[in-house]
Nucleic acid binder design. Structure first.
Lengths: 238, 238
DNA sequence: TCCTGTCATTGACCTGGAGCAAAGACCTCC
DNA sequence: GGAGGTCTTTGCTCCAGGTCAATGACAGGA
């Protein structure tokens, strides 16, 4: 709590793009650092939205819980990313819960601080709009995936995304935080059993390697091929 | 094209909330009216994003087309709603296609006009942020539905939404634009066959009434009950 | 070292809904 | 009023993946 916020992180954050060092210092002073142990909550679905957060260290996941107790993971948050900001701008309570995946620390700006922030630095509004717009696009893509692709492809996409595999990642990459089969299932809209079967098969083929709570991609192009696989036949273009 | 834009519509639009009559007039002058016949496109997935739109009259739907030709409907647009704005703020080409469902007219602000608009009336940025935030919430809800609910419940939700049925709608309501089984299927992530079967069953039960390209909800509480139905058994809260 | 709780694997079974096919209903335009 | 196009319905089949059940593998604490 007493520690200072790393202003380098703020400088790199997209939300504060275009803001200089001196101002960043004042912005940092308006925030409060909050830490949560693995499994702890930064905020909880249904509670009134009183602040927004920027993850400083660790990893968080945003989860919706349905009325019958199923969990759906909307996104994972890496350091430097903003979360919990939407209801501050569009009103309403928090539509989801933010869970610390590992011991994590976030900077927290209260609603009042946010109001001052956007009044003093209007560029933040524009940056926020770009970020939220980007999020619309991501979730729309996930939606399309869920509507049109099979589980295996969705899991492949999720792994590539979580392991930060890009076009030019030559060698493999490991997901750098602990993740269970159940977690992957909640992220891809399936069950841990199906995830387990899929990962076992891939491990047989040698495209991934996995142990308890860990997944490593050995052959990214193999996983990418699975992600791109078309559905068998038929389905004639209309 | 030569017609003037209805400033009453702009005044009611959420995007221009907080802007007075005189300014609205100038804003209206910066737009151009574009009309499309039923089935026509306002913009097309993959094209560079050069403007944003506000639907003046008619109805539009935003559709993504997958590489293998399947269509996924992201949302329907009613008069007064903004569409196509996201890529103007976060960059990139249009991620989807906007189709006129019936003969429709929209006001179109070019990218340059948009820049002037947000510079002169910063409140538009804040309004846009609220709108886009709202959209994040909506699509996240749809995502959760798709991940956790059965087809029947998703169709029920979709009909209630399309027919504008709210808590206090006593009598039935009709979807006030033509919509096929295929359209409903693309909106709910299923096939026209399944939609047809479901609607037939509901018609038997007397909760809806339907003809070619039309659906009317007779007993909203009946449809709402279906939408809320829990999955049979098991699924013990973990 | 054992004990307990969490996570993972795998087999067997079942089902919601997709895929396929064919026929019917409606609409519009000659 | 017939012909052709677009929607819709409905029966049948099949399978991806959910559900159920049981066992196994680790990890951390006492």
């Amino acid at each position: 709590m007493a520690r200072a916020i790393d202003e380098g992180l703020l400088a790199a954050a997209r939300l504060f793009a275009g803001i200089g060092g001196a101002e960043l210092h004042r912005i940092a002073e308006m925030a409060r650092l909050v830490s949560r142990p693995a499994g702890g909550e930064f905020f909880s679905q249904g509670d009134p939205a009183t602040a927004f957060f920027l993850l400083v260290e660790g990893r968080a996941r945003i989860v919706q819980i349905t009325s019958d107790g199923q969990q759906v993971t909307l996104r994972y948050i890496a350091p430097g990313e903003v979360f919990g900001a939407v209801p501050l701008f569009s009103g309403g309570p928090w539509p989801a819960t933010a869970l610390a995946v590992v011991d994590s620390t976030a900077a927290r700006w209260s609603r009042e601080a946010t109001d001052r922030l956007t009044a003093q630095y209007p560029v933040i509004l524009a940056n926020a709009l770009a970020i939220v717009g980007e999020r619309v696009r991501e979730i729309e893509d996930r939606y399309r995936e869920l509507a049109t692709e099979r589980v295996e492809q969705r899991v492949a996409h999720a792994l590539l995304h979580l392991a930060n595999v890009t076009e030019k990642s030559p060698a493999g990459a490991e997901i750098d935080f602990p993740i269970s089969r159940q977690d992957i299932a909640e992220l891809t809209g399936t069950t841990l059993h199906t995830v387990s079967r899929i990962l076992s098969a891939w491990e047989q083929q040698g495209v991934i390697e996995s142990r308890r709570m860990h997944v490593r991609i050995l052959r990214p192009e193999g996983v990418r091929a699975i992600a791109a696989e078309a559905r068998p036949e038929g389905r004639s273009r209309l």
